[in-house]
Design a protein around this nucleic acid. Structure first.
Lengths: 218, 218
DNA sequence: CGACCAATTGAATTGATTCAAGGTCCGTGG
DNA sequence: CCACGGACCTTGAATCAATTCAATTGGTCG
């Protein structure tokens, strides 16, 4: 399997609505580089890399991860089309970023580029806010609440308001929510049995009873 | 118990080294307001408040919290002298801030003030980085690892390199680490029994074997 | 001293994990 | 076209880490 990113001729970019069309104010394309395609599981940046750029997701899904010395992985966040990720306090990356499902990414140089600092601040604060929200999930929610909250989060960030696409596998969800993949599987089953969701395919969840999910999620 | 902050005549500010002396570059005093004293457990800002300012800790300890609808509390961070807290993505506070032990705080207005955006960005990224670090703790560490990592964190941020002052009570530590206060108590005991720490008083921990703690913490 | 609050300690319980055994899906090659 | 292999997912049973509930200790302040 190739893990090398490749530059895309613009004709090969999938015909999905693009990040900068979805969120016009985020970062102008002119401020970002060309779209690079990262195949499934390829590395976008590694822990220890020199920081100094952020990244704009054009399409696909990205995960931001850290690992303990003995190999346990925590996924801090997932990023979809329109999201900007890769903020770092120091000059060295503390996390690594990988493509989950084949993703198109633009580099945004934060130093010399035309992106104004207040705009970068705004984007960084968005990342910070979702990290803070995730802290509550990890620290104080049980498995069912974590899943409920996660599904609603995805629902919020995707186009449909009934169907959630699960681009990542169960293991990714588990590492995001601080669970095991078996527990993720079991909880999805129990939500299904409770008539709250349907799982028409392995990577799709239909939200049948959003109110019930919301009640579970907090 | 009074929960109202009071303005301090400068003569009454405790004779501890001040924030802006500890970290000269952080935020100049001139950019911040006067020091306000917040007694133990008083509110600095509440969830739902209008955002728009950040705060500089001059002395004392602050906790940033969120609660679930049924009252479970997650403490996202503690802040000590020199720290800047209160960053918010939207215009409404998602978290609330309280004084842990009587804290002196300066307001820093982010809009009109002279603090340059790149400086604010830097400070926000610091908050973001520690939130990310905390995600790994909450998501993937067991109780012993959480405590070990927490103690080393405090050690890092305080003056002494052997003694940690625990200004917050066990319940705060528990709500920070996603544990119960009983578990915090038990883990401290087991670290004590293991000869890794000493607990000379209820609010002091002496780090006997920092290497062992480090080994446990990751 | 007595009251109160925080912290400790013990015993029973439980939610999630671990370990193990299938099941499903999909791409590849005969 | 179907059989095979491998990756991922599901399900079950046993285990365990942390919680819950309860009792006790310790420290502080009026």
């Amino acid at each position: 399997m190739s893990t090398l990113p490749v530059f895309l001729p613009s004709s090969s970019i999938p015909a999905v609505r693009h990040a900068t069309e979805l969120r016009p104010g985020a970062v102008a394309k002119a401020e970002a580089g060309p779209v690079t395609f990262y195949p499934t599981d390829s590395t976008i940046f590694a822990q220890g890399d020199k920081a100094g750029s952020v990244y704009l997701v054009e399409f696909g899904t990205v995960r931001i991860c850290r690992v303990t010395s003995d190999g346990r992985r925590q996924i801090n966040s997932f990023h979809f089309a329109g999201d900007v990720f890769g903020f770092e306090a120091g000059d060295e990356r503390q996390c690594y970023a990988e493509s989950v499902d084949g993703a198109g990414i633009r580099v945004v140089h934060t130093d010399a580029s035309g992106v104004p600092a207040h705009r970068l601040l705004q984007l960084a604060l968005t990342s910070f806010a979702s990290a803070q929200h995730h802290l509550l999930r990890l620290g104080r929610m049980n498995a069912v609440e974590k899943l409920a909250s996660f599904l609603l989060d995805l629902l919020d960030r995707q186009e449909s308001d009934t169907v959630v696409a699960l681009q990542m596998q169960r293991c990714d969800i588990a590492d995001y929510l601080g669970l095991t993949f078996e527990t993720v599987s079991r909880v999805l089953r129990s939500l299904k049995d409770g008539g709250i969701i349907k799982v028409p395919s392995i990577d799709r969840v239909e939200i049948v009873d959003a109110a019930a999910l919301a009640a579970l999620s907090d």
